[in-house]
């Protein structure tokens, strides 16, 4: 009764890793530890150096060979310098507003659309489904020129609106929520309707609160991609005061390559929110991992 979905909307199923653990200490594990340790050092080194380097002074970073830890004192003032040299405060605020705008916008438009797909008598359902699916196959880079021209024409350069508008809807989010709505128990829905809840009230006060895990997955994915965006904010802003933090730190690098410590301090500031999201939101990230991540 619900739509027959094109296969591509549900790529390989992935569920959270099972935790079946049986500790044994065979000698073969020594080899595993060894390879894992080497990989750990290589993969985590940029993270380590980013963090430690952000506290190193120029005597450490600009000598050769460079120090791998702050030999000549810890320099937390790298952070205040980074905040001074570019309007990092403004840029932080811009990034926060842009991220909130895109995340909330995507949640609302996706929830409404997914509701129509699952619960409403939608005509030409397969056609609309195809329309939503097709948006995930068009790389934004291939249509970025007309988007730039449009935003410039509307005078929205250097505004939050210009940064967020093109991303307020997403096929990915719609399919993620649709999947969750499909498993909603019909008895509950019927009970709500009997109690006189209309579509809108049912969606926002019953369905969405009960779909929290999927909503959280969508929120985290939206927030991560919005915060980390680079190409579009580079085009949509010119005035340093209105640029996002991502653009800010990349310009910090070119403007002051003599002070890597300060540049890395800027990087750490930009990284902080997403680092928290990845560490504490991992299970929600996994949930959204393979829902048509074609884009």
């Amino acid at each position: 009764m619900t739509t027959t979905s094109p296969k591509a909307a549900t790529p390989p199923k992935a569920t959270a890793p099972k935790t079946s653990r049986r500790s044994s200490s065979k000698p073969s594990h020594i080899g595993s530890y060894l390879i894992l340790g080497v990989l750990f050092l290589i993969v985590l080194f940029p993270v380590y150096y980013g963090l430690v380097g952000s506290f190193m002074g120029e005597r450490d970073t600009n000598s050769f060979p460079p120090a791998l830890w702050p030999k000549n004192g810890v320099h937390p003032d790298n952070y205040s310098k980074a905040l001074d040299i570019i309007p990092l405060g403004n840029q932080y605020l811009t990034s926060v507003l842009q991220t909130i705008g895109i995340t909330l916008g995507q949640m609302v438009t996706s929830a409404l659309a997914a509701y129509a797909f699952v619960f409403l008598n939608l005509r030409w359902r397969a056609f609309w489904f195809g329309v939503f699916l097709s948006t995930m196959m068009i790389p934004f880079e291939s249509i970025i020129i007309p988007n730039y021209l449009l935003i410039s024409q509307w005078g929205l350069k250097d505004t939050i609106a210009g940064l967020t508008l093109p991303f307020l809807a997403t096929g990915f989010g719609t399919f993620l929520l649709r999947q969750s709505f499909l498993s909603f128990p019909m008895e509950l829905r019927d009970a709500a309707r009997v109690d006189g809840a209309g579509h809108f009230r049912f969606l926002f006060s019953i369905l969405l609160p009960l779909s929290r895990p999927s909503l959280a997955a969508l929120g985290i994915w939206s927030a991560l991609s919005a915060w980390n965006m680079y190409f579009w904010p580079l085009l949509a802003t010119e005035d340093p005061k209105h640029q996002t933090i991502q653009i800010g730190i990349s310009q910090l690098q070119s403007s002051d390559s003599d002070s890597p410590g300060m540049v890395l301090a800027g990087v750490m500031l930009a990284l902080f929110p997403t680092l928290l999201l990845v560490i504490f939101g991992q299970r929600f990230i996994v949930r959204g991992l393979t829902t048509g991540a074609v884009k």
Binding site: P17, L39, F40, V43, L44, P46, V47, Y49, G50, G53, T61, N62, S63, F64, P66, L68, L224, W227, N228, M229, Y230, Q246, I247, I249, S250, L252, Q253, S257, P260, V263, L264, G266, V267, A270, L271, T274, L275, L277, V278, I279, Q282, I285
Partner: peptide
């Protein structure tokens, strides 16, 4: 598992700037 997932938090800008520092021919690590 958590440690190896950390690169996922990096944006293209944050990662590139760090690698730019590491690649620096005169004083890079």
């Amino acid at each position: 598992r958590t440690a190896f997932a950390l690169p996922f938090a990096f944006s293209v800008a944050t990662a590139s700037v760090i690698f730019g520092v590491l690649f620096n021919p005169a004083s890079g690590v």
